[in-house]
């Protein structure tokens, strides 16, 4: 079957850098949060790695945002369809029942339609709320380590750390759900494969409709 390009190299690079840094951040963050329970790098090394990974995630987020803005791909994250609610309902219904009966996905999956409505809602929350919260609190904590007086007006780390830790728990929960939902493609590994190689089988005849060609 012919292949169609689903994710550009930039998207894939952005995604995997984000995935790796979030994984490293979760691991090192867990060690910093509970050093008595987890001892992988050692506390001080874990902090250093955590800070470095956080900086990389921030840089990746900035470059990704720039790329999505200039390429126009950002539109895919914005729930603009008129039938958004009905589509979201259909998607939810699919996950709750259709998927068990082997029904087809309610939405066509393609280069112009990478995210279903539930993904759009989720990513909107992740990228606009959770990630900024983590970045702001993380940068503030890092800055407070260098310039302690900066945090004095807000009581030091007393409020920042709980917010950062809570958001990290939500990130971890999201990551588990995200990885599981990648298995709901044509095959359990189809979506992960697509994010690695960039292409998916052209079930829906996108090539015939004049889309960019993928690998044969």
């Amino acid at each position: 079957m012919k292949q169609i390009l689903m994710y550009t190299a930039n998207e894939r690079l952005w995604h995997w850098i984000q995935a790796i840094t979030i994984g490293v951040l979760l691991l090192t963050g867990a060690e910093v949060h509970a050093p008595q329970a987890l001892h992988v790098f050692g506390f001080s090394t874990a902090v250093l790695i955590h800070n470095a990974a956080g900086a990389l995630l921030l840089l990746n987020a900035i470059l990704g945002f720039f790329y999505f803005m200039t390429s126009g791909f950002i539109r895919q994250y914005i729930p603009a369809e008129k039938e958004f609610m009905s589509l979201a309902f259909a998607q939810a219904k699919y996950y709750l029942s259709g998927i068990f009966r082997g029904e087809p996905h309610p939405m066509k999956h393609g280069p112009d339609n990478k995210l279903n409505p539930l993904q759009k809602i989720t990513y909107l929350a992740i990228l606009n709320v959770l990630l900024p919260v983590q970045i702001v609190t993380g940068v503030a904590m890092w800055a407070g380590g260098r310039w302690p007086q900066l945090l004095e007006p807000i009581g030091g780390l007393t409020y920042l750390v709980p917010i950062h830790a809570m958001a990290a728990w939500f990130f971890l929960s999201f990551t588990v759900m995200h990885i599981y939902l990648t298995t709901t493609g044509d095959t359990p590994l189809a979506n992960i494969r697509a994010m690695i190689v960039g292409t998916i089988p052209d079930h829906d005849g996108h090539l015939e409709e004049g889309q960019d060609g993928g690998k044969a």
Binding site: A34, F43, V47, G155, S173
Partner: peptide, 29 residues
């Protein structure tokens, strides 16, 4: 004492909520 020690749980409710969110997701999965 007005200090927050990373790694020393001063706000256990954060971890309680966090653990339950993770547990519910894992159970759902």
């Amino acid at each position: 004492a007005g200090i927050y020690l990373l790694g020393y749980e001063s706000f256990p409710w954060v971890d309680v909520i966090g653990r339950w969110s993770l547990i519910l997701v894992v159970i759902g999965v």
